[in-house]
Design a protein around this nucleic acid. Sequence first.
DNA 1: ACCATTTGACCATC
DNA 2: GATGGTCAAATGGT
Length: 353
Amino acid sequence: MDQKAPWLIKEILQARELVMELQTQLNPSSFSGNVLVTKILSIFETSLLVLNQVKMESASTTPNSSLSQFGGSPLSNCGSDFSPDVSRTRKGIVRWTEQVRGCEHTGLEGPLDDGYGWRKYGQKDILGAKYPRAYYKCSYRNSQDCLAMKQVQRSDQNSSMFNVTYIGKHTCIETPELLSGQYTPNKQEQIHGHRQIYQERREDRSLEETYINFQAPTVQVSKAKDKQLESFPSFSIYSTTTSVQQPANIGNGLETRGNHLMISSMKNEMFHSPTSTHISAPTTPGSNHRMHNFGGYHSGGELLQTTADSLEELDQMISSLLAPIATSSANNDHPMDGSPWGWDFPEDYSHSY
DNA sequence: ACCATTTGACCATC
DNA sequence: GATGGTCAAATGGT
């Protein structure tokens, strides 16, 4: 990996440059276009952070306990300073904090959607803090007993930053019905639905353990009972890898989050009607979720508004961006064998996406 | 009508 | 008792 990381970093930097160029050419009034570009840049930054982390750990025989592997919200955050302060509660529930930049141009009060569905259940003024702390539970708490929670508080020092504390692990999953496109979530789940990139509710948890260990080698998950309670924000490397390896999954409503191909997938949905000033409402639960995850500033079947011109413009630009990637993948002339990350992932896992 | 958010009250911990 | 965290009725949006 230490040998491949520089190459990957270089590639990502190139892609990032292109997107930045794209950003300069975008119509400034194109709200959704700018948000999309910002998110793409965020994905690149996240990938770079991770690669740097991998590089550093490869170079070190004693990996530090940095927990950036916990990842965070590659899709949604305008930026995330991966400095999670991870600890455990008495019950063994993992808990960590990320600093996330808000996206001022979105007009949101808080950081953008982190890819999960959350329901706010409280807000509290905190002693000595300028801003209140908001409390969120997983949207699937009732339907799937998912115990994940998070707390969001605007930073006192920098009001554009948010401290996001995650508590507990998401145990919610997409049901088989949902995966097959037959599942119809209730309205609440449609609006706040989210996806589990890496989790499988299985008796055999070995794959999950493998993945988690990969993410955070210094925070081993070994107690079965704890697994139900610990949470790791979704992370995009897995889906990146698997979707690259299995392009057939693209567009089938399965996982393609946080990577180029997801962008392609989103693009197909979003630009379904290039002459329309609206984007068609998603027609499948999967796309529903994706829309939600992507947007952050809208929900479920609601519509993004933008101009046809900017959409077409963005469509063309993203297509040109994706072309070399797709070509590289299709021709199998990737400079590296197998996974572009150089890691071998369990076969079963890729089936999940 | 349904659902998410708000907000005051209540509970748990220190 | 002070503070943080959670509950649940009220409120507002769709």
